[in-house]
Design a binder for these strands. Sequence first.
DNA 1: AACTTACTTTGACGCAGATCAATTCCGTGG
DNA 2: CCACGGAATTGATCTGCGTCAAAGTAAGTT
Lengths: 250, 250
Amino acid sequence: MLNERSLTVHQDCDQCPIRHRAVCARCESDELERLEEIKYYRKFEAGQMVIWSGDKMDFVGSVVSGIASLTQTMEDGRTQMVGLLLPSDFVGRPGRLTAAYDVIATTDLVMCCFRKSPFEEMMLRTPHIAQRLLEMTLDELDAAREWMLVLGRKTAREKIASLLAIIARRDASLHMTTRAQDGSVAFELPLTREAMADYLGLTLETVSRQISALKKDGVIVLAGKRHVTVPDLERLMEEAGDDTDGGMLV
Amino acid sequence: MLNERSLTVHQDCDQCPIRHRAVCARCESDELERLEEIKYYRKFEAGQMVIWSGDKMDFVGSVVSGIASLTQTMEDGRTQMVGLLLPSDFVGRPGRLTAAYDVIATTDLVMCCFRKSPFEEMMLRTPHIAQRLLEMTLDELDAAREWMLVLGRKTAREKIASLLAIIARRDASLHMTTRAQDGSVAFELPLTREAMADYLGLTLETVSRQISALKKDGVIVLAGKRHVTVPDLERLMEEAGDDTDGGMLV
DNA sequence: AACTTACTTTGACGCAGATCAATTCCGTGG
DNA sequence: CCACGGAATTGATCTGCGTCAAAGTAAGTT
């Protein structure tokens, strides 16, 4: 799967996250119309498989609402999440026949899809789309590599802080956070502890313990299990060991 | 940096790994000539920095000979290699101003470069190049994500086996391995123990210990510190915990 | 041949995070 | 309202890998 770093939120239609004009601001408008014609929606329930690794992929698309995850699994069951698809993120691989990872609906999910072959044909006709997709894919590659540093070198506490910082940043850019006058940021955790563990290469117990520790140290405040308030985003990012000012991740 | 998954080895010129006709088999030949015109070579010694993270990138190119690594570093010095550039791999990010990672010559290195702006102009003129680069970048993304599984979920022994399997496979595709009649494969390890550790998210001591263990168990045979013989590639891949038949990595 | 320097191996020990095991929390439906 | 079940917490213990330290190896230099 290609994923994330959307074609950005549709301005004209709050149902569909793909702002076609962002894909290709310089294309002839009839191409854009054609894109509109081959569009359709798919819904998934939390926990449902969207795509199995190795399956034939006959569509590309993007997330309208909900969260999906890209996951790799070893025969013995160990799993690693390799990407998180938030609303506006792109899924699919122009030019590829089969899916490389499992895609799972983490929450209830709505996707806006395009049949792959017409999309690809259009890509061939309109060069700016390939250029835009290249741009997006490079962003994803950056994100994946930033995540490699997290997985390979960070401590459990730093990993949790990194993930929270990323979600806070991403949610902020989608205006999903509450930002109080004192600068604190609040958001809803979209992942179970287990999903976080799979993303971070940890166990769910370690995730739980580190969240408790961050809470005890006042880095975050929890209301219920899922509602997180970050009093000081700077502090959280220090905890994450982040040099990267605001490197875009996921 | 974009990297790896080359524009493949030049057929006409063994000096230059970029087979321009592979980039764009369908372009007009004068475009290819133009690419030839803006080409130049750069040499680096082992250990030299090719590019600093954050620096302005004014060229793209590919590795002719030697090995380079893409590395991320935290302020406290922890480092994670996020990519390995072998001969024929591509470096550079069309459409990006600055480098996202350090690029370091792991061995003596020769690169074939193109000044970035003419290359980009050409990319705009010849759509197949953007499509080819998209293809390559998607491959890299797959590789990065496969590596996330290695970093997040595999044991030290599996990590080492994974790395050796990848190098063996990569070298084989470049005809750099010796393949004996009994099916064993032999190659030269291009990395120090420390570099391997940085790639695998381990310490050099653990790398050394696991290599000794694999040797003791007959999975590999060492002649000197660097020359590796793999009697049974299947066995090595089992040790790597590899489901992926032959997923391209690095 | 002796010295230097960088790389590698091996050992002893400690700790971060995994594993195993009980509760507790909380949302949902009867 | 209670009861049920998945999610989360917390505790006790184990272990793989990191850390610190020392010694071995190989290639280049004088």
